[in-house]
Design a protein around this nucleic acid. Structure first.
Lengths: 143, 143
DNA sequence: CAGATTTATATAGCTTACTATATATTGTTG
DNA sequence: CAACAATATATAGTAAGCTATATAAATCTG
């Protein structure tokens, strides 16, 4: 039996993901954030004051992973966890001024990586690529 | 400024990569291997008896990452490290009978994940997707 | 309404990435 | 050929993913 890693979707995806991750790391390091914090920051920049549970559902990440990432973000002065007004179990996550102040720079950094990575593709090919990934995600969720 | 994670290539790639990783994990667990060992195993199944340096170059992974992955593979009885016959610094990595015995099962597991993930795509769309990822990897390496 | 179940978060332990640094051997060069 | 530079591997420390488990609060149910 044969198996060619160069035509294996999983193998290629993993490789591409590592390249994006490191490309983003380099570009956001100056702002004091790391790539793993990006999804939570995006969600909170869009709507501040969410519970951990809301973030977990939006980002499709495990609860324990989110809790640990939020620990590091709290340590780094990016968020504060305050008590939920009516639910004693829950905490609400609020961005600090520091987190708000780097928003535009971070958007630009992420856009720059995306632009660089797709620079060899035509507008149609880019659209197709994005669309295919969205379909693959939906297929996984059906599985 | 706006930034939509649902149309960000980097965001989507990261999500898809996690889904592949976990999909593979479930399917290869019965054989006593984990996803991070897969790239090294593929390279060694193709050509047994390579140095760490050769693997690092083929897999585009950092040397320290490879060393640690090989440590776990040695611990798990998948490989042996033997002295290089002429270069005292180098070690040669050899697969154990255990690693060889799971090869076909592992190939099948990986193919199953790929097939499932791409099941919603036409043959042309799959080809296009694979081709695009190869182009994106090349673009990153030019950067 | 007391006891059982569910829910929200936290923590422990593992893997797999990374950077930075250490160590030993090989190769080069004055 | 001795000193220096380059190369191959290993290790320490951090991040970000996972599963499994713990804890406290809320909800449901007989």
């Amino acid at each position: 039996m044969e198996f060619d890693h160069n035509t294996s979707a999983g193998y290629l995806i993993n490789h591409v993901a590592r390249l994006f991750f490191e490309g983003l790391r380099k570009r956001i390091e100056p702002f004091g954030i790391v790539p793993g914090q990006f999804p939570a920051l995006l969600a909170l920049w869009q709507k501040d004051g969410q519970t951990q549970k809301e973030l977990v559902e939006k980002l499709d990440i495990e609860q324990a992973t989110m809790a640990n990432t939020l620990n590091r973000m709290e340590r780094d002065g990016l968020i504060l966890r305050k008590d939920h007004p009516t639910d004693g179990r829950a905490k609400i996550i609020w961005l600090t001024p520091k987190a708000n102040s780097i928003r535009d720079d971070a958007y630009r950094a992420a856009s720059t990586v995306n632009e660089m990575a797709l620079s060899d593709l035509s507008p149609d090919e880019r659209k197709q690529f994005i669309d295919t990934m969205q379909r693959v995600i939906r297929t996984f969720h059906k599985d």
